[in-house]
Design a protein around this nucleic acid. Sequence first.
DNA 1: AAATTGTTCTTCGTATACGCTTTTCCCGGA
DNA 2: TCCGGGAAAAGCGTATACGAAGAACAATTT
Lengths: 226, 226
Amino acid sequence: MAEDLRDKLGAQHLPLRDQVLTALRTAIIDGDYLPGERLTEDRLAEDFGVSRNPVREALRVAEAEGFVVILPRRGAVVASPSSGTIGDMFAVRERLEALAARLAAERASAADVAALRALLDQGREATERQDLPRVAELNSALHLRILQISGNPWLSSIAKSLYLHVQWVFRLGAEQRAPHSWAEHIQLVDAIESGDGDRAERAALAHLDAASAAAYENAEGGYGAR
Amino acid sequence: MAEDLRDKLGAQHLPLRDQVLTALRTAIIDGDYLPGERLTEDRLAEDFGVSRNPVREALRVAEAEGFVVILPRRGAVVASPSSGTIGDMFAVRERLEALAARLAAERASAADVAALRALLDQGREATERQDLPRVAELNSALHLRILQISGNPWLSSIAKSLYLHVQWVFRLGAEQRAPHSWAEHIQLVDAIESGDGDRAERAALAHLDAASAAAYENAEGGYGAR
DNA sequence: AAATTGTTCTTCGTATACGCTTTTCCCGGA
DNA sequence: TCCGGGAAAAGCGTATACGAAGAACAATTT
């Protein structure tokens, strides 16, 4: 929301709580901590090699972000993304990313478009190399970049968080949906470059619909441990 | 997201950090702490009569919610909703609440519609009584209710948070926009009752556009101290 | 076998300490 | 008077310890 302010005056300190939060998030998304698993403060403190204080602060934020659930006096457990909410998440993402595509189309500079094209190229290449993890990574980078280009910090921050959760559900459920449809991505970037908001929005919607459909196929059955 | 779990097993403890967070939020929204104002941990701890720890945890969450900005090694300041972001917020809200209206139209039960109509009635009555604060309150209640009826927890939670921020900007800038347009509300509820998603979405968009325009009129000039 | 009691684990909040930046403020010089 | 520099103060970041209270589980008793 205000990263620009943050790094203005000397501040590359990166507080421990932030490092812990990042580590915790990725551990949960990567499935190192499974849904329903108990996260005691002592254990996390030991895992990350810090004291309990930074852990507690990270846990509160993780709760606000929906990655853990905190039961008063009982501690934190990893949240359980039920399969029911996949559809809900996509419904919101669809709207949000469509708006992002429109705004990006209206505001993208030549440099922005170039950056997107670069990601597209790398994506194609990685696809040819069958480097699936890299493809997934580039896919994320592209979406996040478009969000950023939209220039709407609220949109960006909300959609980003949603995106993380989608990834989480994906990784828990099954492998990434195999060949990310780069054709759709190319159309999306083309539309953004054209500056035509309507067209960009349509392209985003088409892409999200396809992704949503793929998600449903992939994610048969529910998750959630306890 | 999982409030249902929370109150299942005995837990009316309400940790201090939550009380502090709530107090902090309302203090900021009510303008008791003004944008740009420095919030030292010691001072907050004293204000709320607690130690630094609960304060710190509340601050982290408040930061995640966008109410404060935390500069590493420099502490927290109340965030400054610049007039620029008002537009951004409404842009997102428009999409989100339009979706909510559609979903509500598709899923609303008779009881849901009755609840909405009740709010509408109270609103009309309060308007006649010129009870502006009550009108504003009912206006919020109506929007929040529609969000809830949509049945999409993500949508609901995100839009709710956004809604809080809009209120914040309003209260700082000026009084509530005078006579909330209950005519628009009535059309929206009618559309929801009809079960016609498209129509509900159009009604929501029209309403949000009007609100956005009013907001711009009302909020001439920027906010933010320093 | 069921109920009660007691023990243990953990969270929650407080207090304290200390290093390290940032901020403030005072003082001397131009 | 104004400016700059440097010492002192303020405040964050982190660690640690401790007591209180709740929850879970085991043991004991009825």
